[in-house]
Amino acid sequence: MACGTHIKVLILLPAVALAGLTAACGAGGNGSGGAAATSGSSAAAAPVPAVAKDDRLAALVPAAVAADGKVTVGQDQTYPPNEFVDEGGKVVGFDVDLGNAIGQKLGLTFEYQNADFSGILAGLAADKYELAMSSFSVNAERLQTVDMVSYYKAGTSLGVLKGNPANLTPDTLCGKNLAVQKGTVQVDDATKRSEKCTQEGKPAINIQQFQAQTDVNLQLTTRRSDAMLADSPVVDYAVTQTNGQVEVVGQPYDTAPYGVALKKGNGTFSQAVQGAVQALIDDGTYGKILAKWHLSTAGAVTKSDINPAG
């Protein structure tokens, strides 16, 4: 992530729903708060048509990866609508549907393992995962350690309570409680903004970091934070899932591609994944997945790249 970033994919809950939070540490439930979850629940129930295997792309998958017919995927499943656990305990979301379709193109099954977002890339480096797909924003720091295949573009959005009672903008957060998910680009953004506050003689931002995005969301809805920063699709989803309890301030900023992360030096695996993403864009499957999760077409890409500029 925005969650990135996860620039990381969000669900906001009343306090009584805390036990049902989908947390990076493995708690169950989708954290949507009951009746407010209707759009997410119906989307999760709608299947995406299977796609045919592409033998040419499948041949690019390294033998060590293809041998068991599956790909182990590291993912933080607290970031709806991109990756989360639904009411039935099933892992769903935009990244999940797209990942499954990539796997089908390559003749492989994607198996998703839940993890704290901040530790996923380290797990990839340690061969705990063969691939990571969890709303990772492409940036120069990440490209030093992994290859990334682009598949969507998202920005950072500021989420506040309905009506924006504190009249906040991204530039007026000095002295405020700001919730963010650990390991995301939003942490870096908030840190820079806080440093600017103190340089101008204003109080620092109280940056509240949490392992799970669902905990970030809860901070806002229970008024323990004045605002939150998260990827634009995640904040947009919060608005729909809470019947407008949350609103977005202004437009997304610092837009960057999401990327599937793969270990460097792994043969032609990156080329196989990039080719699969491009094929899904070209055959219309990608557009169907975007529509299913109500993701903005403004973030859609027409060309998937390996290690694009962030």
Rank of each mutant, 00 (worst) to 15 (best):
M148N: 00
M148Q: 14
M148K: 01
V149M: 04
Y151K: 00
Y151Q: 02
Y152C: 04
Y152I: 06
K153A: 02
A154K: 01
A154N: 09
G155E: 06
S157F: 01
L158I: 07
V160P: 01
L161H: 06
L161R: 05
L161M: 13
K162D: 09
K162M: 08
P165H: 13
P165A: 07
P165C: 08
A166V: 02
A166W: 03
N167F: 00
N167T: 08
T169D: 12
T169I: 08
P170E: 11
D171Y: 02
D171G: 07
T172Y: 03
L173F: 07
L173A: 08
G175T: 01
G175Q: 03
G175F: 06
G175P: 00
G175R: 00
G175Y: 05
K176V: 08
K176D: 09
L178C: 05
A179M: 09
Q181Y: 02
Q181K: 10
Q181D: 07
T184Q: 10
T184G: 15
V185S: 14
V185W: 02
Q186R: 04
Q186E: 15
V187H: 09
D188P: 13
D189L: 15
D189S: 07
T191Q: 15
T191I: 14
K192S: 15
K192R: 14
R193M: 14
R193D: 05
E195Q: 11
E195S: 09
K196F: 04
T198K: 05
Q199M: 07
Q199R: 00
A204L: 04
N206Q: 11
N206R: 12
I207F: 08
I207R: 00
I207H: 07
Q208A: 11
Q208S: 12
F210K: 11
F210V: 12
Q211W: 15
Q211S: 13
Q211K: 12
T214A: 07
V216Q: 03
N217S: 15
N217W: 03
L220G: 02
L220R: 04
T222V: 11
T222K: 05
R223E: 14
R223M: 15
R224W: 00
S225Y: 06
S225P: 03
S225I: 06
D226L: 02
D226K: 12
D226E: 03
A227E: 05
M228N: 08
L229G: 03
S232G: 08
S232Y: 10
P233H: 12
P233L: 08
P233S: 13
